[in-house]
Write a protein that binds this DNA or RNA. Structure first.
Lengths: 134, 134
DNA sequence: TTTATTGTCTTATTTATATAGTACAGTAAT
DNA sequence: ATTACTGTACTATATAAATAAGACAATAAA
């Protein structure tokens, strides 16, 4: 599974978000051992230092913890994970509504455009790759 | 009206987006004269070079045009503006659905959370400022 | 005991942004 | 004609991010 990192925003931020999502979606389960810094760096095609920076931040927020020489693990605090999921979902929804509002879309227009898009979607997975070249 | 630029992403990109939205939402009308580079730079509290870079890009895409010494103007091609609005709206909707899907939300959950948020909203304007310190 | 792996730390270099300061030619206003 | 304003161009500097390369101590595995 590719990491899909772009140069729009700092890479270490995108890595943090990616791992957060992987935890929230259940790809990584509480207590799971993460691959080593060097493995993750290679997998994501980034410098180990960059991966380390992202992991340190995840550790600072308590989502993962490091055991000095045996590796790094996902928190077993499922409440924390659930709260993060709610928080991120809320942020995504809020940002979406703000963006649409800035473009001049009213609530009803926003919902109808959303439903239209949902109806048009073929599968649930695998859209993206909208390279408009800007 | 503040420009609300943050350091998350390159400033000149955020300026481009801001002006695009101002054109789409009708704050700037087709044919309108833009403030000078220096004025805009001061208004946005950025360096004139940064503003110039953003304006050059807007010019490259045809949304504004410069008249060497009299100033810069919004395109009178209303079709282009309408198309940009549709394009940006589509991108916003698609990105929103992708993000929610990554978090593990199904279509129905996404819509219900959205409607719940819309119902809870007090006014149509002025949310934002969610500084969680990350 | 030896070896390999772990997280962690350090220094140096490169690149993209943003800023600072200055300059020039064309033109509108005076 | 002079002045002020326009977009545009240029060099230099500062900063954050990413990379490159290497090192260390602790520990699990052999």
């Amino acid at each position: 599974m590719p990491w899909n990192l772009n140069s729009d925003r700092p890479i270490f931020i995108q890595i943090i978000e990616k791992i957060q999502v992987d935890i929230i979606s259940g790809l990584y389960m509480p207590g799971d051992k993460l691959p080593s810094v060097r493995e993750l760096a290679q997998e994501a095609s980034v410098n180990p230092n960059t991966m380390q920076k992202a992991l340190s931040e995840l550790e600072r927020t308590g989502l993962v913890y490091a055991q000095r020489t045996s590796g790094r693990f996902i928190t077993e605090d499922t409440t924390m994970i659930d709260e993060l999921k709610s928080k991120l979902a809320k942020e995504i929804v809020t940002e979406f509504l703000e963006n649409m509002q800035k473009l001049g879309f009213q609530k009803e227009e926003t919902i109808s455009l959303l439903e239209k898009t949902l109806a048009t979607e073929k599968s649930t997975k695998g859209e993206a790759d909208n390279d408009t070249g800007m």
